[in-house]
Design a protein around this nucleic acid. Structure first.
Length: 483
RNA sequence: GGCGCUAUCGUCUAGGGGUAAGGACAGAUGGUUCUCAGCCAUCAAACCGGGGUUCGAAUCCCCGUAGCGCUACCA
């Protein structure tokens, strides 16, 4: 039935929080599927729950999707489409497929508890299906506002899923679902399938947590005679605790925008998300966006949930950062310096690029630039205790030795005609070799004096980037500290 | 409690009747080096259990177990 139709898929978030990892992956799979088939990727805001929906959340979702580059073709907002759902409900009511239910939440709670005790398959028994006009009048007089329930069919429902295969849902498990709340607003199961029909969605790609909803929505669609989209229920994204990744249990940790703020690249996130539940072959791990579009196939999406492993994301991110050339990497890193309060205008563009070059492949994420380069901008305010203890020592004799080395190095460095890479290197090696001082000791002693830490890029790079004046000043400070 | 989904190294996964069960991340070890990262090399690490079917099952079937999801006038 959908064979000759253009592929139309949708991402249907409810704006009740930030865009989270699981939602982003669902969006990605939809987007890749649409792109692969030259179809349309639609964004539909499922905000029928007006209580929980917020404007702020909407912007979070927009900005998250934009950052990832998951551009969409059409936007729909369900709260603006109520007349459409009303039409569908009217039809359902008229055809006798839906009915008013006057049960109060308290009454429902009671029968729910009872059903549980009696181990019933479903709790709501359809008691309002056959209310007489007199009863309705009485209930209305009591001030009760009815909901509308869908009358579920007696025949089993067949769900054909691209990933899970064909499933037959026992009719006995189907509950007469509420499709319109007492406040007159439609519920998800009604508006969702109504819009899928209305927007001519061809494929519904969503998380398995919706599998139970699918049979309910199918019942509605069947009663309405709607064209039914194809379904693909993708496995859940799990936290390391094995539970579904959720805002409730795992907090802001799962927010996509949080990763952006920490300096993750969208291409790394996309690559990572794509491999969560999907694989191409037994070798390839790195996929460009274009490759993803070309190779993505729902048939190669697995059935079991996948744990979100941030270590692998880190690895991918580091990889994609190194793919950036120095100019692009510098551009990417500047906002992170600025955000940390570092004044980048104290350096020339060339100096900034030289710093980034010196850092090389050491960045796991862009935010790392701050802790790895702050000493280029300001002299260290303290010396890392562990490093100082190891290389400067804590006995008077060791400290004297460190001071000695620093003093000599200062002399050597001040005497070099041109303070350039090779000259500096040659001068230092000449000094260490002539005085029979271990290279590591000299270098680490100096490194701590200049940077405050015992690790980082090549010390020669640091020396040259800092410049003679700054180097000598810092050595002086270190000597003063040691004596 | 009910209904459902799932099950290969710690993690992401490949393989789907005959494989030494492969790769990647993470881990360990060694090498390179002024340190760290990186890079290179090496190592360790898995078919949930039990029954079938079969000459042969990690792979097919059944049962169990476990994990997870849903069980709202949330999506």
């Amino acid at each position: 039935m959908n064979k000759n139709r253009e592929v139309r898929v949708r991402m249907a978030p409810s704006p009740t929080g930030f865009l989270h990892i699981g939602g982003a992956r669902t969006a990605l799979f939809n987007w890749l599927f649409a792109k692969h088939h030259q179809g349309t990727f639609i964004l539909r805001i499922d905000d029928t729950d007006t209580e929980r929906s917020t404007e702020a959340s909407l912007h979070e979702i927009y900005s998250g999707l934009k950052w990832l580059g998951l551009n969409w073709g059409e936007t729909y907002v369900q709260s603006e489409r109520r007349d459409i759902y009303e039409r569908y409900v009217t039809r359902l009511l008229a055809s006798g497929n839906a009915y008013y239910c006057y049960c109060t939440p308290e009454e429902l709670d009671a029968i729910r508890k009872e059903a549980r005790v009696e181990k019933k398959i479903r709790f709501y028994d359809g008691r309002c299906r056959h209310l007489t006009p007199e009863e309705i009048e009485r209930l209305t007089a009591e001030g009760r506002k009815p909901t509308v329930r869908m009358k579920m069919p007696d025949a089993p429902i067949r769900v054909e899923d691209i990933i899970l295969g064909t499933r037959n849902i026992d009719a006995a498990t189907l509950e007469d679902e509420v499709i319109v709340r007492a406040n007159g607003l439609p519920t998800y199961n009604l508006s969702s399938i109504a819009d899928d029909a209305e927007l001519e969605i061809t494929h519904v790609i969503r998380g398995v947590e919706h599998l139970n909803n699918t049979s309910k929505q199918l019942a509605i669609a069947n009663a309405l005679g709607c064209t039914i989209p194809q379904f693909a229920h993708i496995p859940l994204v799990l936290n390391t605790d094995g539970q579904k990744l959720s805002k409730r249990h795992h907090g802001a940790l799962v927010s996509v925008n949080r990763y952006r703020e920490h300096g993750y690249l969208p291409e790394a996130m996309l690559n990572f998300l794509a491999r969560l539940g999907w694989s191409y072959d037994e070798k390839q791990e790195i996929f460009s966006v274009d490759e993803l579009i070309e190779k993505f196939d729902l048939a190669r999406v697995g059935k079991s949930g996948s744990v979100f492993d941030s270590k692998k994301l880190d690895w991918l991110n580091a990889h994609y950062i190194t793919q950036l050339d120095i100019a692009a990497r510098t551009d990417a890193v500047i906002p992170f310096w600025e955000k940390a309060g570092i004044d980048v205008t104290t350096k020339t563009r060339q100096q900034l690029e030289d710093i980034v070059t010196a850092i090389g492949e050491r960045l796991t994420n862009l935010a790392d630039i701050v802790s790895q380069t702050n000493y280029f901008f300001d002299a260290p305010s303290e010396y890392e205790p562990k490093a100082a203890k190891k290389w400067w020592g804590n006995s008077d004799e060791k400290r004297r030795q460190a001071v000695d080395i620093l003093t000599n190095l200062a002399t050597v460095l001040s005497e070099i005609p041109a303070f350039e890479l090779e000259a500096v290197e040659l001068a230092i090696w000449t000094y260490t070799d002539a005085h029979d001082i271990k290279r590591v000791l000299a270098m680490q002693t100096l490194r701590i004096a200049l940077t405050g830490t015992s690790f980082g890029p090549s010390l020669f790079d640091i020396l040259v980037l800092l410049g003679r004046e700054q180097v000598l000043e810092r050595i002086g400070k270190a000597i003063a500290h040691l004596t």
